[in-house]
C-alpha cells in the first residue's frame, strides 16, 4: 500500500505531460527550431517553481513526510561526462522526440512502437554500464 502514493504521483505526471504537450514530438522539434516559446515556458516555469519550493524548504518551512529536511542529492563534480553524455542524450531526444519520462507516458497513450524505443534505451544504458570504466568522466 505504501506504493500507492508513487502510483498516484506517476499518474499525475503522465496526465500533466500529455496535457502540456511536452510529450509531443512536434513540440520538441519546434523548441529546437526556436519557433515557439511553449516548451521554454514549461521548462522555465517548472524550474522557477522548483527553485521557489527548494528555497522555502531550505528555510525549514517544509519538511519531508518523515519530518526530515527536504534533501536533494548532490551530483558528482565533473565536466566531461555531463557535456558529452548530455550531447549524446540531446541527439536521441531530438530524434525520437521523447526523453525517458515521456517514453513510458507515450506508451500509455497507445504508441506501441515505444516498446522498441524503451528496449533500445535499456540496451543503451547497458552499453554505458559495460564501457563505464573506459569512458572519461
Amino acid at each position: 500500500m505504501k506504493f500507492i502514493k508513487f502510483l498516484l504521483v506517476g499518474i499525475f505526471f503522465g496526465v500533466v505531460l500529455v496535457k502540456s504537450e511536452a510529450v509531443s514530438w512536434f513540440r520538441i522539434y519546434e523548441m529546437f527550431r526556436f519557433q515557439s516559446f511553449h516548451m521554454y515556458g514549461i521548462i522555465g516555469t517548472a524550474i522557477a517553481s522548483g527553485i521557489l519550493f527548494l528555497q522555502i524548504s531550505k528555510k525549514g518551512y517544509i519538511k519531508s513526510i518523515k519530518g526530515e529536511d527536504i534533501f536533494v542529492p548532490k551530483k558528482d563534480k565533473g565536466f566531461t561526462r555531463y557535456i558529452i553524455g548530455g550531447i549524446i542524450f540531446g541527439f536521441g531526444w531530438a530524434l525520437i522526440g521523447a526523453c525517458p519520462g515521456p517514453m513510458y507516458i507515450l506508451l500509455g497513450t497507445g504508441v506501441w512502437s515505444m516498446i522498441l524505443v524503451i528496449l533500445a534505451a535499456a540496451i543503451g544504458t547497458l552499453i554505458y554500464g559495460m564501457l563505464r570504466n573506459k569512458l572519461p568522466h
Binding site: L95, I96, Y128
Partner: peptide, 23 residues
C-alpha cells in the same frame, strides 16, 4: 531510427547521470 534514438537516449542519459527530470 527508433533503435538508434533509443540507444542514444539510454546511453547518453546514464553517461550524463540524468535526463530532463533529473538534470
Amino acid at each position: 531510427l527508433l533503435i538508434v534514438g533509443g540507444l542514444l537516449v539510454g546511453f547518453g542519459t546514464r553517461y550524463a547521470g540524468g535526463c530532463t527530470s533529473g538534470h
